[in-house]
Amino acid sequence: MVIGSNGFHVQYKKADPNFDLQPLAGPAEWIAPYNWTYRAHGGAANDIQGVKYGFEATVAKRTIFSLQYDDLERISNGEDQSFVCAQVFYLF
């Protein structure tokens, strides 16, 4: 939590088709980035594989900026499913 501190991470992801059951997804999952793996935007991590790159930095007291790039593709047909996500976490 030292202002100016930062970190980087890399993560491999793979979720075969039917890894998560779309009909069982709830509202918390409907707004997650993994919904972009479905044309109808309604489910969780299914039929994807790739690498996630993430960076975090403490920008102010109790405030962390996070940036991630998921370089994903659909396993079944190779369709690009990549996305960028930026977030600010304020801890209290």
Rank of each mutant, 00 (worst) to 15 (best):
A45L: 03
K61S: 11
E79F: 05
I48N: 00
N35W: 02
A44R: 07
D16K: 07
Y90C: 06
A15Q: 04
W30S: 04
M1Q: 06
V10M: 15
A15W: 05
Y90L: 09
N77H: 02
K52N: 13
V88T: 08
Y69A: 04
D71A: 13
A40C: 13
L24R: 07
N6W: 10
A60G: 14
N46V: 03
L72Q: 00
A57V: 14
W30E: 11
Q49G: 06
L67P: 00
D71F: 10
V51A: 15
Q11P: 01
G54W: 02
L24A: 06
V59Q: 12
A60V: 07
L21M: 13
G50N: 08
F8L: 08
D71Y: 10
T63S: 08
D20N: 12
C85W: 14
E56Q: 06
A45T: 01
A57N: 10
S66W: 01
V2E: 13
D47K: 09
M1S: 11
N46W: 02
A32L: 10
A86H: 00
S82M: 00
W30K: 04
G42D: 10
A40P: 00
K13N: 14
C85H: 12
D20M: 12
A32F: 05
M1G: 08
D71R: 13
L67S: 07
Q87F: 01
T37A: 15
S5D: 09
A28V: 07
E29I: 06
F83V: 00
T58V: 15
M1W: 03
A45W: 01
L67Y: 02
H9F: 15
Y53T: 04
F55Y: 15
E73R: 03
N35I: 11
T63K: 11
Q49N: 14
N6A: 09
L24Q: 09
M1I: 08
D47H: 07
E29V: 08
I64A: 05
H41Y: 08
V59G: 09
D47E: 09
Y69G: 01
G78E: 03
I3R: 14
L21Y: 13
S76R: 01
V88Q: 03
Y12D: 13
N35A: 09
T58G: 10
K13H: 11
L91V: 09
L91N: 05
